[in-house]
Design a protein around this nucleic acid. Sequence first.
DNA 1: GGGCGTAATTCTGTATACAGTGGAGGGATG
DNA 2: CATCCCTCCACTGTATACAGAATTACGCCC
Lengths: 218, 218
Amino acid sequence: MRASDRAYTELLRQIQVGALPPGTVLGEVEQASRLGVSRTPLREALRRLASDGLVVQQSPRMTVVSDIDVDDIRSLFEVRRALEETAARLAARHGDPAVFAALSADFARAAPAEGSEREDYYALIARFDAAVDAAAANDYLTAALRTVRTHLGRVRRLARDNPERLAASVAEHRVIADAIAAGDPELAAHATHLHLHHALTSVLTALSADPAPVKGTP
Amino acid sequence: MRASDRAYTELLRQIQVGALPPGTVLGEVEQASRLGVSRTPLREALRRLASDGLVVQQSPRMTVVSDIDVDDIRSLFEVRRALEETAARLAARHGDPAVFAALSADFARAAPAEGSEREDYYALIARFDAAVDAAAANDYLTAALRTVRTHLGRVRRLARDNPERLAASVAEHRVIADAIAAGDPELAAHATHLHLHHALTSVLTALSADPAPVKGTP
DNA sequence: GGGCGTAATTCTGTATACAGTGGAGGGATG
DNA sequence: CATCCCTCCACTGTATACAGAATTACGCCC
């Protein structure tokens, strides 16, 4: 694996996990020595992160981890809705019903109430997303959704889903999978709309319950 | 201006114009010497182009200008429709009516039948897009649309609009601007849908009329 | 004559050296 | 004591040197 890829993956992970909170200044020499790579591959990693929107160049000498607030989350979900509804429509039109029927069965079996099965459930969602992308067969759409999902990783950490929300999410995904399997584009799109609406509501209530995570206050 | 920015801008322009047709192999040393920069900034430019999807790394030693065929154009317009309809809805909700009323008046004055006014008209469209982006006030949406529009530059070159299409495009844009000025989100979204449908149809007919531009046949 | 193996060349990936610029800190002056 | 200017330091941007890998060409053997 290339050093630039390692630096990108590691920085991405640390930003998503919160080890590098918003506002953190990412100096090239500092991060390069910290990650054990040279400045050249680290610069490439920083440019990729900037292209994703995870870091911003405030001045030519200050690249910082980008902030993400409640308004950003709303904006992100607006784009997400536009793209995922389109993906659901395309998947319903072109997808293989058997694949999504099987996914629906997997969702039916999923019971993410247990803590250990939470990761399994997120993996199942990732499989579902991959199946939708494959069925939509639109590289531009997949690329745009990849960026959105990258940011979503940060949101998921900010607002940890509670068990009730996870159970509801299972049911919502199952409805979407069934709609795609049935080849009903509008049903799939509207089920996606509902799912994202509930997901956003859950995130916003979780964030308003918790005090907003502050970064540098002593 | 940084050398990496110059390299990126120049390569982007040459790809969009067609000076670097799809399939062209972009060797680092060759392009670096050709553009008069070193390999380091050129590598950054190449990575940005790859992030945009304009070049692909077929193998670690072959980065080529990505191909774009009729199916790609259809896919691109699917994503474009999803994003621009959303942008139109948001602009109708949050935008300043005066701004879009003024733009509507500008479209009313525009008469791109003359060859010299073609560039002026494209500039007016760019202004309109910028106004929609500003009114939508959604950075994620703007970023996603930026990528789409980058690819659209190539399509526009492949299928040169004829005067009738340009005149129709003026009228369509004016309808969208009026809908946004009136604060009617659904009308703005549907007008955008119609506009993109006609634009895609025009592109596809133009491409089926012209034989598909072949690259390496002697 | 064809196929396989080896060697050489070339290209990428990485590290480091160098230059320029911006900022911060300290000293001097009003 | 505050403010302004000058100097120095640090950090980015760029170029180049070096190592490793892959591809290609050439030669030998079958």
